[in-house]
Simulated scan of single mutants.
Amino acid sequence: MTENSPASEWGAERVDPAAYLRRIGCAGPLAPTAETLRELHRAHVLTIPFENLDVVLGRGVRLDAGALQGKLVDGRRGGYCYEHNLLFAAVLERLGYRVTRLLARVGPLGEPRRARTHAMLLVEADGTRHLADVGFGGEGLVEPLPFAEGAVSHVGPWTWRLGRAGDEWVLSTLRQDGWAELYAFRLEVHHRADFEMANHYTSTLPSSPFVRHVIAQRTIPGARRRLQNLELDGQELKAEELHAVLGEVFGIGLEPEEAEGLARHARAAGRSPERQG
């Protein structure tokens, strides 16, 4: 499958690959190979945090390439799946990769079916296709996964598998009690309007976890640091500690009054077990 929509629809030309590469600490080589894709994917996941702070602060999330460049690269912030993967897609296209942007249903298969609210990518390199996803949060991929039924990836303590269920592809992760489905998707062309609709739904629906909770995650080799409301890695924080934690643990620089607003929201939200990407 190839993507039929023109690159100009996504504005890839507005992304600065050199600035992005400095942001994630990659110097090359940059030939559009599977090995380069793996290096870029891993560096992105280990550098740019997953976070929804602009949603909680009432600013909304813009998906145009210029805004993604300004926030995640120039502003050294993080974002959630649409921001991460649309930025990554634009950079990959600038480097010569062929990229298909996809949307998935998060969570285990079954009824009722959830809306398609997660973004990820299909990338062609060295004559083969790879599932790339730098923006799931939770238990998301660290490196690309070969796009083949039964493909398995091991990175540190984590394992993922790509399978089929009818006409859907399913990404699963291995937990202590067995395989758990992360999301399911079909191969079909999506357009920017589809992503804008999904982003609006995710960032405004009152029951969305990204509206209800303060969330930040940083992946480091072999571990993940996760903030949800006023809980960091399972330990309760004081509201006044939030500003320092965002900066020191996640590399997210906010003004003190912004952190205070997040803390108020976090106190109101309370603790929740939700782990959606």
Rank of each mutant, 00 (worst) to 15 (best):
I48L: 15
L102P: 06
E35P: 02
W158E: 12
E231M: 06
L171Y: 03
R161Y: 02
G66C: 03
A12S: 11
P6V: 04
G66T: 06
T47Y: 06
R116G: 02
H191D: 06
E9C: 00
F147T: 02
A268Q: 13
T117Y: 05
V15L: 10
T204N: 12
Y82N: 11
E51Q: 02
R212G: 09
F250N: 10
D233L: 05
L103T: 10
L30M: 15
A266M: 07
V99K: 11
G79Q: 11
L182P: 06
E274Y: 07
E9T: 02
P32E: 14
E240L: 14
P209E: 08
W179N: 06
R38I: 04
G234T: 05
L227A: 07
R59T: 01
G60D: 09
E93M: 10
E236R: 15
A65V: 01
L242R: 04
R267S: 14
D133Q: 01
E35F: 04
H44Q: 15
N229L: 00
R164G: 09
T128Q: 09
D167N: 15
R224S: 06
A31I: 12
A216N: 11
L227F: 08
E168M: 15
H265G: 09
L162V: 13
T2A: 02
R186G: 13
I252L: 15
F185Q: 11
D133A: 01
W158T: 05
G110C: 06
F136I: 00
R164M: 15
Q69T: 11
G96L: 05
E143T: 12
L95C: 04
E258N: 00
R114S: 11
L131P: 02
R42M: 08
R114N: 04
A7Y: 00
G127M: 01
Q235H: 11
E143A: 09
Y82E: 11
P29R: 14
K71L: 12
H200A: 13
W10S: 01
E257R: 06
V56Y: 04
A18N: 03
R271I: 06
R23E: 07
L122W: 05
D74Q: 07
H118G: 10
A266H: 07
A193R: 04
E9H: 00
H84R: 03
R94L: 11
S207Y: 11
D16T: 02
T202Y: 03
Q235V: 14
G222Y: 07
H213C: 00
G234N: 04
M197E: 09
R101L: 08
G270I: 01
D133V: 00
A269Q: 00
A223Q: 15
R62Q: 15
A165S: 15
D54N: 14
G178I: 03
T219R: 04
W158D: 13
E39V: 13
E143N: 02
Q217E: 08
E35T: 09
R22Q: 14
R101Q: 10
G247M: 08
N4H: 03
R114V: 10
S203D: 10
A34E: 11
R62M: 14
E9W: 00
I220P: 04
E9L: 00
R192S: 03
L242Y: 10
L102G: 10
V155D: 14
A239K: 12
P209K: 08
E9S: 02
G166S: 13
E257K: 04
